[in-house]
């Protein structure tokens, strides 16, 4: 059968014929028995679909899904007890087991990008603000050199290190040896999304997050890595980090823009 008429038959099944095409098809069907049979069969088939009933959703499905949702979209250092509790509950749920394999792989990849560089090349300007740039993610080769900033608040030092992989940005914070510090991270949600925070072994920290801000307090001798997904290519400065002394001993917080 001519492709044109075959198309017309299917267009008619879909209800998309123009008046002119209707006339054309009718004329053709009257002169071609095979085509008329095909047309009638496909019409009947289409009618069988439309008479199919809508399936009712299982009544407990919503509750099951709500019960399975993780407590927080952002992993912000839960206490050890609740962490193990959550992990155990998750592992009991077979649906999570396949996902866990994938997640472990992804975290391992991120850990590689977050490995700490011991080289010290702090380049703080006189006013304590250093300009940096987030490159569009498609221009990243494998990873870019780390952008490292040395921070001095009063007599306390810490170090910030930002590194990009293909589509992730990882900020690693090496806390001071003496004083707890507070960090405020501002990131435009259109460009970056906080994925998760890793802490050093045995360490705790407190954090508050929303779509565009992360506030955290870091005890002495703590390192953590904060992973962002780069959502959109940008050449603008995207991540602002403001550091202050958690004990209120410093009168002037320092601001860094990556």
């Amino acid at each position: 059968m001519d492709d044109y008429y075959n198309d017309l038959i299917h267009k008619d099944i879909d209800g998309n014929l123009t008046e002119e095409e209707v006339a054309d098809l009718e004329k053709f069907l009257n002169s071609n028995e095979e085509a008329r049979k095909l047309h009638n069969d496909l019409k009947a088939l289409s009618g069988m679909f439309t008479s199919e009933k809508i399936q009712e959703t299982p009544p407990d499905l919503k509750q099951q899904i709500m019960n399975s949702l993780p407590d927080n979209l952002y992993q912000t250092a839960p206490s050890r007890g609740s962490f193990w509790e959550q992990l155990t509950n998750l592992w009991r749920n077979t649906r999570f087991q396949a996902g866990m394999g994938f997640a472990v792989g992804a975290i391992a990849m991120l850990l590689v990008t977050a490995s700490f560089d011991n080289a010290s090349n702090g380049n703080v300007t006189d006013n304590g603000i250093v300009q940096g740039t987030l490159l569009p993610n498609q221009t990243y080769p494998e990873s870019t050199p780390a952008d490292i900033r040395q921070v001095t608040i009063g007599q306390t030092d810490c170090r910030l290190r930002l590194q990009h992989s293909e589509s992730f940005a990882t900020l690693t914070i090496q806390g001071s040896s003496h004083t707890p510090l507070t960090f405020k991270l501002d990131y435009p949600e259109q460009e970056m999304a906080l994925r998760f925070i890793e802490r050093g072994p045995g360490k705790t920290f407190t954090a508050a997050v929303n779509a565009e801000t992360l506030l955290l307090e870091l005890p002495p001798n703590t390192e953590l890595a904060i992973h962002f997904l780069v959502k959109k290519a940008t050449t603008k400065k995207s991540l602002k980090v403001t550091v202050n002394n958690a004990l209120g001993l410093s009168s002037s917080p320092q601001e860094f823009i990556f």
């Binding site: 899904i65 949702l69 979209l73 999304a193 959502k231």
Partner: peptide
């Protein structure tokens, strides 16, 4: 269906 919604929830931050 459960997998779909769990996946969507865990990826909400990726939604443009």
């Amino acid at each position: 269906t459960q997998n779909v919604f769990l996946k969507a929830y865990s990826r909400l931050s990726l939604f443009d």
